Simulated scan of single mutants.
Amino acid sequence: MAVIEVNQLSFRYPQANFDAIHDLNFKVEKGEFFCVVGSSGSGKSTLCHALVGLIPHYFLGKINGTVNILERELTQLSLAEISQRAGLVFQDPYNQLSYTAETVEEELAYGLENRGIPRLEIQKCIMDVAIKLGLEDILKLSPLSLSGGQVQRVAVGCSVILNPEVLVLDECTNQLDPEGINMIFKLIRQLNNEGITVVMVDNNVERIAEYADHILLMKDGKSVALGTAQEVFSQLNIANYDVGIPEYLSLTQEMVSQKLLSTSQVTLRETISEIRRHL
């Protein structure tokens, strides 16, 4: 079942003389870990905003085509209705904060309180999310006193606590160190395994190759390639799009040439454990 359907989607900001995204067509299946990669200015953030209804409900401009989530067209839904289906984690986690909450606990409760959820139910939701994201020890701390990695987990929690079926993440690992990046990817994989459909924009090609079911490569607002990690990163001209080539791919090719790996193992994810075994 397709949870997201993007059909001939184009969007142009006011006063711009070109489309930020142009004629995009793709589907994301239920439970999929779908990743979007591309150079700066390729339209990735604009696409994220379109997937959660900020375009056209908040960012104005000329839009063509449609975005459907769970078989409902987003222009026919309010932002409140869309938020019950899809959540967004911003590139800068501090943009996720309400700046009205004195503690992480209050920050997590903010969205639920706006929905009029009973207090006892809110407290249960907070504890469930805190345990899932490892936030139990910082619930009483101010969000502004936390490390970057902690704020990022809180930002994810603010979206996850609203129980969306789709979670969209816009380059949320950019400001993290390698340990923080690893933590966030594992966290998102855990949420994905629990049934949340994930759309993640990121240029950490090593992690993308490991986690993604399918990848959309964008350039100048357009779709350049769509497929598995193997299909997208194996393109001969991938370097022309300012996207790195995963080390896993070069290792895979070298291991195949040395007959350490069968060519029947066609996806990068399937080869990772085997590659690590030989390292």
Rank of each mutant, 00 (worst) to 15 (best):
T267A: 00
P246T: 05
E247G: 13
D202V: 07
G157N: 05
Q84H: 13
I63K: 14
N17C: 00
L279K: 04
E102R: 08
G149C: 01
K140S: 13
V224D: 05
L70S: 13
K62M: 11
E136T: 12
L226Q: 01
Y94R: 02
L216R: 03
L146H: 12
G227S: 11
L261S: 05
Y94C: 00
L47R: 01
R269Y: 06
G31Q: 10
S40D: 08
G157T: 12
R189L: 04
V6M: 12
Q8K: 15
P164F: 01
D213H: 13
A16T: 11
V28K: 00
Q91T: 02
D213G: 06
L139F: 03
A155D: 05
C172T: 12
Q91V: 10
Y110K: 01
E210K: 07
Q8L: 07
L226F: 14
G41N: 11
D242Y: 04
E107R: 04
L135Y: 09
V104D: 08
S223M: 15
T66A: 12
I184P: 10
E73F: 03
G38V: 04
E29S: 14
S147F: 00
K132F: 04
E81C: 03
L108G: 03
E231I: 01
L217H: 00
N25A: 01
Y94T: 04
E210G: 00
L216Q: 02
I131C: 12
I196C: 06
Q76V: 08
Q235P: 09
Q190W: 00
L176F: 04
C35K: 00
E102D: 10
I122S: 08
K140H: 14
S145Y: 02
S264R: 13
T103Y: 05
R119S: 14
M183E: 06
I238G: 13
F11K: 05
Q235S: 08
S39E: 14
I117N: 10
G41P: 11
M255F: 09
I122Q: 13
S40R: 02
D213R: 03
R12C: 12
R115K: 05
F233L: 10
I238Y: 10
K219Y: 13
L108I: 03
R277G: 03
S159M: 05
I181M: 04
